[in-house]
Nucleic acid binder design. Sequence first.
DNA 1: TCATTAAATACATACTAGTGGTATGTATAG
DNA 2: CTATACATACCACTAGTATGTATTTAATGA
Lengths: 220, 220
Amino acid sequence: MGRNKYPEETVAKILDAALELFCAQGYEGTSIQDIVDRLDGMTKGAVYHHFKSKEEIFNAAFDRAMAPIVEHRRSMLGVGNMTGAQKLKRLYAPESVVPQIELWARMRPAADPVKSSRLLAMQYQGSFDESADGCLLPVIEEGIADGSIACECPREAAEAVSLLANLWLLPLFRPLEPKERMLARTQCLAQMAAAVGLDLGNEVLQTTAQIWDVWDRAGW
Amino acid sequence: MGRNKYPEETVAKILDAALELFCAQGYEGTSIQDIVDRLDGMTKGAVYHHFKSKEEIFNAAFDRAMAPIVEHRRSMLGVGNMTGAQKLKRLYAPESVVPQIELWARMRPAADPVKSSRLLAMQYQGSFDESADGCLLPVIEEGIADGSIACECPREAAEAVSLLANLWLLPLFRPLEPKERMLARTQCLAQMAAAVGLDLGNEVLQTTAQIWDVWDRAGW
DNA sequence: TCATTAAATACATACTAGTGGTATGTATAG
DNA sequence: CTATACATACCACTAGTATGTATTTAATGA
């Protein structure tokens, strides 16, 4: 294959193939050659021209996939005429979470946590980042400031809710549970969150229900 | 090296070296050769005679390390003259958790979740197993049966508490937080657990404090 | 009870296919 | 003409295997 006039297309192809493979086979289970083989005609030289390591490909692929979702969340919370409590509820409403889910469902990460251990580690890490630098903690603090939320341990509550939401309510790394069990988990989390001053709202149940439907429709 | 009259000594040496290396360098970061190099004189043939794959070594190493702890827990709960609620509190009392912690501290798994992603995945998986087949859920159900615990969603509560205890209160895969923050997390979890009917007891705070001291003393 | 033998075990040695990554070559776009 | 976008050829290293060899154990026979 000769030189491409638009190399960003090549980069996009690489990242598309990589994302799909990393999800299906895990990080260690996917070789650079596997990726190259999906880039018909292209060779390893092309890949290593655009990326300096397998790890960089992995990170780039997921950053790219996550970017629109992060953007979507951030824009949703940018509005001024909402209290912190309202924004918190909105964070777990279907409109916020479902786009993310559609992405995960499309990528189909392996339900085996060991096989997807690197993804799991990223979600784990991300749960802390999300609560620290991301949207959740700032929203809670906003709610405390405007008086709409009464929470004694905002940082801790944010971390706990993030962790449970990302690793327990999202059925990424374990076989999909029956719908009623996922709803029970959601209600359980909502009760626990309420105990530390966070009202996740009623819509969170619909969110879980919709997630379940998407997952189920995707054939899990 | 000639044939050993007591091959179980060889197996033990292999597992000791493997455990230390897997903790320090992660699964993928540790090669069979790394392990062999610590077994002075021994060769890869010996290792592959006793174990059929790297994965089997990994599992065997951790199963062996965990066995006495699991045993300790199980024996502690075997006694008859305790209510479920009392057993639950005991599960999170220092005497139950500290032995486990000493082990972890000795092994020093990397605080980088990505580097230790396989261990993280095992802890994640283990959190569900622990709540399902392990001690927590049975104890809760015992408490419900004897009337000492009132919990509407035992399975969900057990999973949530297990997850948070293993991935949030145990400082395995993240840099150690200041002591007061770890205590705040503990109190937060206790509050959340109480909201779904589980009283973890007052001793859980001492447990966290002791864990922190062990970690700190180990030079984290 | 004890030597002799046969078989099973505990390793060592030598090798393979495949891996992530690099060095270098070549053609094309700017 | 130069910088970029690739291709080709290669490297050290990996998990795992096939095979060889010495030693322990078990079986045998007296």
